[in-house]
Computed example of a mutant assay.
Amino acid sequence: MSITVGKLFGNGAVLYQMKLLAGQKGLNNLVEWVHIIENDEVSEFLHGNEVVLTSGILNDGDGWLLEYTKKLYAARASAFVVNIGPYTKSIPNDVIEYCNQIKMPLYTIPWETRMVDLTRNICYRIMQSEQVEISIASTIKNIIFKTGDIETLILQMERYGYLRDSHFCFIVMSFEHKEDNQLEFDMNKIKMYSERLARSIHELYISFSYKDSWVLALVNYGNYDVTNFVDTFFKNWNEPSWKVHMGISENKAGIKMQAENFNNAFTAMTMAKKQGKEMVFYDKLDIHKLLLNAKDKEVLKEYYKDTLGKLEKYDKENNTDLMSFLYMFLQNNGSQSLVAEKQYIHRNTVNNQLKKIEKITGYNPSNLEEKLRFYLGFFVKDVL
Rank of each mutant, 00 (worst) to 15 (best):
R159K: 09
Y160N: 06
E195F: 03
M115F: 03
K191Y: 06
N142C: 03
L197M: 04
Y107L: 10
K146H: 06
V95R: 08
N188V: 07
S138I: 01
Y160G: 05
S209E: 14
L204K: 12
E151P: 01
V95L: 10
L204E: 04
T139R: 02
R196S: 15
D94S: 06
K89M: 12
K189C: 01
D165H: 07
Q156D: 15
L163H: 09
L106P: 08
M127D: 11
P92K: 11
E179K: 05
M157T: 04
Y107G: 02
E97I: 14
N181F: 09
L118T: 02
L118G: 01
I134K: 03
V116T: 13
H167K: 15
I201D: 05
I154L: 06
V95M: 03
I136K: 07
C123R: 15
F145Q: 06
M127A: 04
E151T: 14
M187V: 09
S200L: 00
E151Y: 10
D165M: 11
L155F: 12
I140G: 02
E179C: 05
W214M: 14
K189E: 06
F208N: 06
F145L: 06
E130V: 12
L204G: 00
T147E: 04
Q128D: 15
I171R: 01
S90D: 08
S194L: 15
